[in-house]
């Protein structure tokens, strides 16, 4: 009897220790990035592009990377949403959400979700060779859009599936076509989840470095057209950390802090928006 109680206590202790370990790692990561990044932060970091000798420790900032990441992520978000939303609407309005086709498509999105981003980068690279494209904002957008596609589609599917069937039936009964039902009823109903799905995919896209390594290139200038190479925030961190100068490495920590704040901001916005938009939804 006592042995059982001891076992119970032992494992409960281990579980609590594990929880502390998991949550502690998160706190440690955020803490270290904050402590190391804050001293190197300055207004120049976010308002200046790199001047000559920036990577040797001279002045400048990473505005090029911030704007590059922004354009890249926006482009990729629009593109992947344009592919994912119609597919999800089709599976849930035209087809039965539990049909074999829907299950197969979900499975293939799940598998695509698991494909490492470096492979998307390599695939993007073969596409570039195929179309004779050079490393550019456009190529980066394509690679990141493919990377975001499964994340976007799976999260959209989760919310669209929750729309009550009765609402669809009511809409058909009033004479609406499938398309009208999909756009005016399903999309409106699923709007909060839709916004969350988009933000989730954006967060993943903005933080990814491996896929843009091959495709978007890197430059000190802010891109002015789709065919120019573009710097990205994660790669800026990577390259700055790779230099042998402590002053530049400190800037890498500051850049990591900026990226982390952006990611935290996106996930916070996710939570707040979900709560606010839920008000307009019929239950």
């Amino acid at each position: 009897m006592d042995l059982r109680r001891a076992e119970e206590g032992l494992f409960k202790g281990l579980m609590l220790a594990s929880m502390v370990l998991v949550l502690g790692s998160l706190a440690l990561i955020l803490g270290v990035i904050l402590v190391k990044g804050l001293p190197a932060m300055s207004l120049d970091m976010i308002t200046q592009t790199p001047k000559g000798g920036y990577y040797l420790g001279k002045e400048g900032g990473i505005l090029n990377a911030i704007l590059g990441s922004l354009w890249l992520t926006l482009g990729a978000t629009v593109l992947s949403l344009a592919i994912a939303l119609p597919v999800v609407l089709y599976l849930n309005t035209w087809r039965d959400a539990r049909s074999r086709l829907a299950t197969l498509t979900r499975l293939s999105f799940d598998i695509l979700w698991g494909i490492p981003s470096i492979v998307y980068g390599a695939f993007g690279f073969t596409l570039m060779l195929l179309f004779g494209l050079r490393a550019s904002l456009l190529a980066g957008i394509l690679a990141i859009a493919l990377l975001m596609l499964p994340i976007m589609a799976r999260s959209l599917d989760e919310v669209v599936r929750m729309v009550p069937r009765d609402l669809l039936e009511a809409s058909y009964a009033l004479g609406a076509t499938r398309w009208e039902t999909a756009v005016r009823v399903v999309v409106r109903q699923a709007l909060p989840g839709l916004v969350t799905a988009v933000l989730l995919a954006m967060g993943r896209g903005i933080g990814d470095a491996a896929a843009v390594l091959f495709t978007a290139g890197f430059t000190d200038a802010v891109p002015t057209s789709l065919l120019q190479p573009a710097a990205t925030l994660p790669l800026a961190i990577f390259f700055q950390l790779g230099t042998p100068f402590p002053a530049v490495q400190a800037r890498a920590y500051a850049s990591a802090l900026i990226l982390t704040v952006v990611i935290l901001g996106i996930s916070l916005a996710c939570r707040l928006l979900t709560r606010r938009l839920v008000k307009n939804v019929v239950r």
């Binding site: 998160l26 990561i29 933080g207 990814d208 994660p234 790669l235 950390l241 939570r271």
Partner: peptide, 17 residues
């Protein structure tokens, strides 16, 4: 939410850490 946050941290930031 904290575990989701851990999933959201970019790979590069893990690298810096």
């Amino acid at each position: 939410p904290f575990i989701d946050l851990l999933a959201g941290i970019p790979s590069v930031v893990y690298g810096v850490w």
